[in-house]
Nucleic acid binder design. Structure first.
Length: 729
RNA sequence: GCUGCUGUAGCUCAGUGGUAGAGCACUUCCUUGGUAAGGAAGAGGUCAUGGGUUCAAGUCCCAUCAGCAGCUCCA
């Protein structure tokens, strides 16, 4: 006998061989028909498996049926759909090798090893074949094999990658599960839906390259992406959301609205801020600067480059070498030395390189004895480093913190001075891989709204609290109110972390306490902390339900150590401060890019590059229009007049397409009464005539209150499916 | 960085080996019109760059540069 506890707390007893489907049937036939899977002791399992096989203690089973109404069930559905897709591909392309086929946030993919290239033109017939398989309605049947049998089966099916995976990746699994559906058998952890007919709506989305086990040195595979839903409506609203995201693409809107430009002649990933985009950025900067001064920050500036030694001290240079721009050397020949050090480290220095190196050394006038005498690799590298250090080397700064540490150190600090809060819109340069660059969201030159707080261990809690308040305030001001915090803590089992045990414990406890008090939604993730300290990241959801990682607050025990930062305590002895990195926006590039998509280009009045456009009905009121513009400018607005000899309809259309918040139509009537007719881009119609000074007061209030009047809210419920990242099977 | 796709006027795109096209934007002229496009004319291109095949290349091949999607990465 087994004893199950249902979510409402009631218990039931069943015989040993009872399956979840049996239990559903006991409640109602209709429920049984809706069952997709079950959750047994918190684990999602096949509805068709006897529950007793899944538990250790048959007396204590928490049990829940998952139907088409449960978001977790979508993952099961999609995984099954991935199998069906693979089956269809194997029918159409005999000899297809199978790799992995997991679910993703909104769908699934399957990686295929196949000579013949699949293209989007093949999608209709693959989909037709899938439809056929679903119609055949065969069940998914699970069976288990020993490792030897599993290898044999995969060999018999000519699935080399599966054979390899069973032998290597799953080496510690005693027995392995497979699922059979008709002629299709796949090594798979499961679970699956009971019958293929549950899949009411699916679609193939795209094809892309991938690598076996994600390693670029491995075999390249073809990855077919698809999505699947419980109903046609769900599929359609998902596809609409995808379309909506495309319409909002900041790269398209940025071009259309003249916000920013990226030009290959300037360089990949280097953003040119056009006047309108710069206006938005300047407004955000101004806003935050004012806020920082109110909150006790001190402004600082630091240069765009710094000596390589500075980043050797901080540890950034050696650690992130590949994602930095190459150092700038005082002498061209320095690059040869740098190159040779790297070659030596990899044991790849050729005799030609070495003679070029000695020539370069001669040009720069270095003593060569050390190098020539050196016999081991390490001695040679040491000699080269000595040469290298004899000249100045600069790095485009990848981080602001080393500069700020030096500012901290530039004078003695007393405990009475702490906390010291140094703020700078610091521009940093990172040589991101080509494939990572993406409009403004991922660039090679970016400006962080950075600040570093230097405080005592006791002050960490307060500083963290203040920083959280600042980030919340900032997000609210731009209308982002849906977010959560990810608290990244250390992995207690790992020893990669710097800083004392005591510090970590205290820091993690303070962060957790402050977050709890704040009432913010947060989740703690063990093992996600940086080696130098725990951090809290703000995950912000935009108007169409996408999540972005923006602001961040990070504690740092490493840099104060490396830079030997100190303050004099009340005991008149030197102490080490704690450092906090924080950036409410992250980078201005990323933040503005995200805002463009969030507002779909329609910025609120306080941020809109052009807030108001005055549209004279005919040339006869041009003079009055210019007078209105002058008044509005005097009142602090960004405004222009459209004086073209076009009809007012055309002027309205253009202003509307440029997403200008307010249009003021002025004709003889308005001129006579010194008023304006307001048209608003949201209502898309005339919202009435107001005396000019009343209109100004209305607009000023809207700016002052940073009102968000227009925000598209998607009706799409972003259903977060449990995504199967581990790829275990 | 890897795999695949793409690169034609300021923008969006057509053009399958034989004399470079459309719409919008732009310029000029006409038009003076009350809430999403008034009309006409004109100007604008080393078809991303470099090489190759061919009597002939925007079109076929190779390389480079850049963009897109995905992978991998993100202090």
């Amino acid at each position: 006998m087994i004893k199950i506890t249902l979510p409402d707390g009631t218990t039931q007893e069943h015989s040993d061989q009872t399956t979840s489907l049996d239990i559903a049937r006991g409640i109602s036939e209709r429920l049984a028909n809706d069952v997709v899977a079950a959750e047994v002791n918190g684990k999602i399992v096949d509805a068709a498996r006897p529950i007793n096989d899944l538990v250790e203690d048959p007396e204590q089973i928490s049990f829940r049926l998952l139907t088409t109404r449960d978001p977790e069930a979508l993952g099961v559905l999609r995984h099954s759909c991935a199998h069906i897709m693979a089956r269809a591909v194997m029918r159409l392309f005999p000899g297809t090798g199978l790799a992995f086929g997991p679910t993703t946030g909104h769908g699934y993919y399957y990686d295929f090893d196949l000579e013949q290239r699949i293209s989007e033109e093949d999608f209709p017939r693959i989909e037709a074949e899938m439809q056929q398989i679903i119609k055949e309605g065969e069940p998914f049947e699970r069976f288990e094999l020993s490792r030897e049998e599993a290898v044999q089966l995969c060999e018999d099916m000519n699935q080399e990658l599966k054979v390899e995976h069973v032998k290597t990746g799953l080496a510690d699994h005693g027995s392995l599960s497979f699922y059979r559906q008709g002629e299709f058998v796949d090594l798979c952890r499961g679970p699956h839906i009971p019958r293929a007919g549950k899949i009411k709506a699916f679609k193939l989305l795209s094809i892309a390259g991938s690598f076996w086990k994600g390693d670029k040195d491995n075999k390249s595979l073809q990855r077919l992406y698809g999505t699947a839903w419980f109903s046609k409506q769900d599929l359609n609203s998902y596809l609409e959301q995808v379309e909506e995201a495309k319409r909002r693409d900041h790269r398209v809107l940025g071009k259309k609205l003249g916000l920013f430009h990226i030009d290959p002649k300037v360089g990949q990933g280097l953003c040119l801020w056009l006047p309108k985009g710069s206006t938005i950025r300047a407004l955000l900067e101004e806003f935050i600067k004012k806020e920082l001064i109110n909150r006790g920050y001190d402004p600082v500036y630091s240069p765009h480059i710094g000596r390589v030694e500075l980043y050797e001290t901080s540890g950034h240079f050696p650690y992130y070498r590949d994602s930095q721009f190459a150092p700038i050397f005082g002498h061209d020949a320095g690059r040869i030395i740098d190159f040779c050090i790297r070659k030596l480290q990899d044991d790849e220095l050729s005799p030609e390189n070495e003679s070029a190196l000695l020539q370069a050394a001669e040009i720069m006038g270095y003593e060569q004895q050390d190098y020539k005498r050196a016999s081991t690799k390490d001695e040679k590298i040491a000699a080269l480093r000595k040469w290298e250090k004899a000249q100045e080397r600069y790095l485009l700064k990848p981080m602001n913190c080393p500069h700020h540490c030096e500012i901290y150190k530039s004078q003695p600090r007393s405990y009475r001075d702490l906390p010291v809060r140094l703020a700078e819109f610091g521009t940093v340069y990172r040589h991101e891989q080509t494939g990572e660059l993406n409009g403004m969201l991922r660039v090679r030159g970016l400006t962080q709204d950075d600040a570093h707080l230097f405080c005592t261990a006791e002050q960490v809690e307060d500083e963290f609290r203040h920083t959280l308040q600042l980030v919340q305030f900032v997000l609210k001001s731009v209308g982002l109110d849906d977010y959560r915090v990810q608290l990244s803590l250390r992995d207690p089992k790992s020893d990669k972390y710097v800083g004392s045990e005591e510090n970590w414990q205290q820091a993690e406890a303070s962060l957790r306490k402050v977050l709890q008090e704040s009432g913010l939604r947060f989740e703690a993730c063990e093992g996600e902390a940086a080696f130098y300290g725990p951090k809290a990241d703000f995950m912000v959801r935009d108007a169409i339900g996408r999540e972005w990682q923006l602001g961040t607050v990070q504690l740092d025990y490493n840099l104060p150590e490396r830079f030997e930062l100190e303050y004099t305590g009340a005991d008149n002895k030197p102490h080490r401060p704690v450092m906090i990195h924080r950036a409410p926006f992250g980078s201005l590039e990323r933040f503005v890019g995200m805002l463009i998509e969030h507002f779909a280009g329609a910025f609120p009045l306080w941020l809109a590059p052009e807030q108001i456009r005055v549209l004279p009905v005919t040339d006869k009121t041009s003079d009055y229009a210019q007078e209105v513009v002058a008044e509005l400018k005097k009142a602090g607005f960004r405004v222009s007049a459209d004086l073209r000899s076009a009809k007012v309809n055309a002027k309205i259309r253009d202003a509307q397409l440029e997403l200008i918040p307010y249009m003021l139509v002025v004709g003889p009537k308005e001129q006579e009464q010194r008023s304006v007719s307001i048209r608003d881009r949201i209502e898309s119609k005339d919202i009435g005539m107001l005396p000019l000074d009343e209109a100004i007061a209305k607009f000023q209030q809207e700016v002052r209150e940073k009102t968000i009047r227009q925000q598209f809210k998607s009706t799409f419920q972003a259903m977060e499916a449990s995504s199967d990242e581990s790829n275990e099977y």
